[in-house]
Design a protein around this nucleic acid. Structure first.
Length: 559
DNA sequence: AATCCATACAACCGCAGTCAA
DNA sequence: GTTGACTGCGGTTGTATGGAT
């Protein structure tokens, strides 16, 4: 590119372009250069020529040898990238044609951010190009208030969704939901998702979507666009395992993935927007037919921009993390009138700097922590307050003193609560407000003030509240309900990591949590599936034990 | 003319998979 | 079975460019 070559066309390298090979921490280009100073930054045409010459001689691959053999002061990784994206023959340069654009849209609808795979369908185009194109497109369309996907795709998704819904229902009814509820795995296994294999038949739409992810199963009520007919059959088992492991460990060790999941709330609305659909999805309360929010749809393909590619069953269930590619403006700024909120920033900050410790080990001041911490703190605090006001009778699932209720740092006064609720504090936002704020506001909707409230989302469970309201015991009680359903981390922690010592009760709790979270849109089958799977298979990592979130759990106790 | 801002693009970075020693 | 080099991928960042104000 012209501007790339302009600054150091003759190989004159400024100091800031030269860096020592990175060590282990930054493994970029770190392996093969033994202290040789490597250049970074834009490539010069001279360097290009050297690289081309090298590849002519030696062929592609063994990129780390380039520097040795050609004297090019570039790391292998950089060479590979340069070659693949710019120098290799048959590269198509210039703007994408309309056909290509169309294809990209289709491919993205199918496979999400699988840029390399998409590039394979676009001869002469690189993954980087496609990625850049797509990201630009996202921004552009969002700014314009347009759906990411064209109406045809929306329609197709609708049809597929409906079709799959029907199939799913049959599937669900034919399969025993008891499968998922059999074992008692309070002892959380390390390898969990293989256990799901025998039960994959319960996963909706298996024939076409064998590789539905656990997360998508969990989230299917939230992000359940079905795009089953155009699934592409790709994803290595290892990768899926890896992702599953990643998510599992995150479930336990940190809170990150609760937020990944939570992210999907945001992304699902992006997806909805992408298809020109309202979010929350319309829910037909008369027919109890959750068109998109509904019970059994398999794929979260379009919910998070990603898609669980398929390989026939007997695979570990993949937990695909949602892409974070949507910017903060994406999260909250779909509509032109939706201004960035502090909360969104908090989410962003959280994602960038997830807490390193577990919930149990750290209960930082919410003022100093990320949103999730704040939520957790909030949850714990409520629980604590509840404990204090109750007759302090305990039951089997009550938190042991000291875990939180007695923790001095968690005894939050009414005043502090008001602080929490301060409208201008990022921490004043509950998840409810997050839902509200992240609810996309279409171009023809007005302002945040008029945006659909969380009531829409959680039906009768959630109330919009003025933050100025004073705290009362009654409200406290009410807020136990209010909070638990508005703290997705709490939901997740509690719901999915529930112990099942007495399945019945906990199951109800889990189910309630799920139900609440999913606006009661899950069918009973699905709810039991989800909850049962969580109980049965002990989702989560050992570090995320029951004891890690007792206060949160406590909030789900039935009255 | 200066500044701002959106866009496009190249390159960087970290992570994870593969494979051979 | 372990380790390290190599490789591929996806996300992010940096910056040149051009249009709008």
């Amino acid at each position: 590119m012209s501007r790339m070559t302009s600054e150091s066309e003759n190989g004159i390298v400024s100091n800031n372009q030269i860096e020592l090979p990175l060590g282990e921490e930054g493994n970029y280009c770190g392996s093969a250069n033994g202290g040789v100073v490597l250049k970074k930054g834009p490539w010069t045409s001279a360097e290009d020529a050297i690289l081309i010459e090298y590849v002519k001689k030696h062929g592609e691959g063994n990129w780390n040898a380039v520097q040795k053999h050609s004297g090019l002061f570039r790391c292998g990784k950089s060479c590979r990238l340069r070659w693949a994206n710019h120098l290799r023959p048959n590269l198509k340069k210039g703007a994408f044609t309309q056909e290509e654009e169309q294809l990209i849209i289709e491919l993205h609808a199918k496979m999400g951010n699988k840029w390399a795979l998409m590039a394979a369908h676009l001869p002469g185009r690189t993954d980087n190009e496609i990625k850049n194109y797509w990201n630009t497109r996202i921004k552009r369309r969002q700014r314009a208030g347009l759906p990411l996907y064209p109406p045809e795709a929306s329609l197709q998704a609708l049809q597929e969704s409906q079709r799959c819904l029907n199939i799913d229902r049959i599937e669900i009814r034919n399969k025993s939901q008891h499968d998922t509820l059999q074992s008692n795995s309070y002892g959380i296994p390390n390898v969990i998702f293989d256990n799901l294999t025998p039960n994959q038949s319960i996963i909706p739409y298996v024939p076409e979507l064998p590789d539905i992810t656990a997360s998508s199963m969990l989230m299917k009520g939230l992000s359940s666009f079905q795009y089953g007919s155009i699934m592409s059959p790709i994803m290595h088992r290892q990768k899926r395992l890896r992702e599953a492991t990643t998510l599992l460990s995150s479930f336990g060790g940190g809170m990150k993935n609760e937020f990944h999941l939570f992210d999907q709330f945001q992304e699902v609305d992006i997806a909805a927007q992408s298809f020109g659909l309202p979010f929350p999805f319309d829910y037909d309360s008369t027919t109890k037919n959750p068109e998109f929010f509904g019970e059994n749809q398999g794929s979260h393909t379009l919910a998070n921009g990603n898609f669980s590619a398929s390989k026939p069953t007997s695979e570990a269930v993949k937990l695909e993390l949602p892409s974070l590619q949507y910017s903060e403006s994406d999260l909250g700024g779909w509509g032109p009138s939706c201004s960035p909120s502090p909360l969104i920033e908090s989410v962003d900050a959280f994602i960038q700097s997830p807490p390193t410790g577990t919930v149990e080990s750290e209960c930082p001041s919410p003022r100093n922590s990320g949103l999730l911490d704040a939520l957790l703190h909030e949850a714990k605090t409520l629980s604590s307050a509840k404990n204090q006001l109750s007759d302090k009778s305990s039951n089997s699932s009550t938190v042991t003193p000291g875990d939180n209720a007695d923790s001095p740092g968690l005894n939050i006064s009414e005043t502090e609560w008001e602080d929490y609720g301060h409208p201008f504090s990022p921490l004043g936002h509950t998840a409810t407000s997050l839902f509200s704020e992240c609810t996309p506001i279409s171009a023809n909707e007005s302002s945040l003030d008029e945006s659909p409230s969380c009531e829409t989302f959680t039906e009768c469970y959630v109330k919009s509240e003025s933050v100025d309201q004073t705290w009362t015991a009654d409200r406290e009680k009410e807020s136990s309900t209010w909070l638990d359903i508005t703290s997705p981390d709490a939901l997740l922690d509690s719901g999915w990591l529930e112990h099942d010592s007495a399945y019945g009760k906990d199951q109800v709790i889990v189910t309630d949590a799920v139900e609440t979270l999913l606006c009661d849109d899950l069918s009973s089958e699905s709810k039991q599936m989800a909850a049962g799977a969580s109980v049965n298979h002990g989702w989560g990592h050992s570090s995320c034990s029951w004891n890690n979130m007792p206060a949160v759990y406590q909030m789900y106790e039935l009255p």
